[in-house]
Computed example of a mutant assay.
Amino acid sequence: MFKGLKQLYPGANIAAIDYDAGVSVVNQANRIKLMMSIANGLDRNCTNKAIRET
């Protein structure tokens, strides 16, 4: 599934979050926080690039 999404959206930030009973809530939260920090960094890079091009 990830491969198909990456082919359609090469710049997509995709993270697998396990919601099984054996997975801790802290682990889930950490994965989401990591995904969001990567997205924030990518957004900053795009904004800086757009500013330099103008």
Rank of each mutant, 00 (worst) to 15 (best):
residue 1 M to E: 12
residue 1 M to Q: 10
residue 1 M to C: 10
residue 1 M to K: 12
residue 1 M to Y: 12
residue 2 F to W: 05
residue 3 K to I: 13
residue 3 K to D: 14
residue 5 L to I: 13
residue 5 L to P: 01
residue 6 K to R: 15
residue 6 K to Q: 14
residue 8 L to D: 14
residue 8 L to I: 10
residue 10 P to F: 10
residue 10 P to Q: 12
residue 10 P to H: 10
residue 10 P to E: 10
residue 10 P to Y: 12
residue 11 G to R: 15
residue 11 G to C: 11
residue 11 G to L: 15
residue 12 A to M: 14
residue 12 A to T: 11
residue 13 N to R: 14
residue 13 N to Y: 12
residue 13 N to A: 12
residue 13 N to M: 12
residue 14 I to Y: 15
residue 14 I to V: 15
residue 15 A to T: 15
residue 15 A to K: 14
residue 15 A to R: 13
residue 16 A to V: 14
residue 16 A to C: 13
residue 16 A to N: 11
residue 16 A to I: 14
residue 17 I to L: 15
residue 17 I to S: 08
residue 17 I to C: 15
residue 17 I to W: 12
residue 18 D to T: 11
residue 18 D to Q: 12
residue 18 D to P: 07
residue 18 D to N: 15
residue 19 Y to F: 13
residue 19 Y to T: 15
residue 19 Y to S: 11
residue 20 D to T: 13
residue 20 D to L: 08
residue 21 A to E: 12
residue 22 G to T: 10
residue 23 V to Y: 06
residue 23 V to D: 09
residue 23 V to K: 12
residue 24 S to R: 05
residue 24 S to T: 14
residue 25 V to K: 06
residue 25 V to M: 02
residue 26 V to A: 10
residue 26 V to N: 06
residue 26 V to L: 03
residue 26 V to F: 01
residue 26 V to P: 00
residue 27 N to G: 01
residue 27 N to F: 02
residue 28 Q to G: 02
residue 28 Q to S: 05
residue 29 A to M: 02
residue 30 N to G: 02
residue 30 N to T: 07
residue 30 N to I: 03
residue 31 R to P: 00
residue 31 R to D: 01
residue 32 I to R: 03
residue 32 I to V: 14
residue 33 K to F: 05
residue 33 K to M: 03
residue 33 K to V: 05
residue 33 K to P: 00
residue 33 K to C: 03
residue 34 L to W: 02
residue 35 M to Y: 01
residue 35 M to I: 01
residue 36 M to Y: 03
residue 36 M to H: 04
residue 36 M to T: 11
residue 36 M to A: 14
residue 37 S to C: 04
residue 37 S to W: 00
residue 38 I to M: 09
residue 38 I to S: 05
residue 38 I to P: 00
residue 39 A to H: 05
residue 40 N to K: 12
residue 40 N to S: 08
residue 41 G to H: 03
residue 42 L to W: 03
residue 42 L to P: 00
residue 42 L to D: 09
residue 43 D to S: 13
residue 43 D to I: 03
residue 43 D to L: 11
residue 43 D to Q: 06
residue 43 D to M: 09
residue 43 D to E: 07
residue 43 D to V: 06
residue 44 R to L: 07
residue 44 R to I: 05
residue 45 N to Y: 03
residue 46 C to L: 11
residue 46 C to G: 01
residue 46 C to T: 04
residue 47 T to R: 11
residue 47 T to E: 06
residue 48 N to A: 07
residue 48 N to G: 02
residue 48 N to F: 04
residue 48 N to E: 10
residue 48 N to Y: 03
residue 49 K to H: 04
residue 49 K to Y: 07
residue 49 K to E: 07
residue 49 K to G: 01
residue 50 A to T: 04
residue 50 A to L: 07
residue 50 A to S: 09
residue 51 I to L: 06
residue 51 I to K: 13
residue 51 I to S: 02
residue 51 I to F: 05
residue 51 I to G: 00
residue 52 R to P: 00
residue 52 R to N: 06
residue 52 R to G: 03
residue 52 R to K: 09
residue 53 E to L: 12
residue 53 E to Y: 04
residue 54 T to L: 13
residue 54 T to N: 10
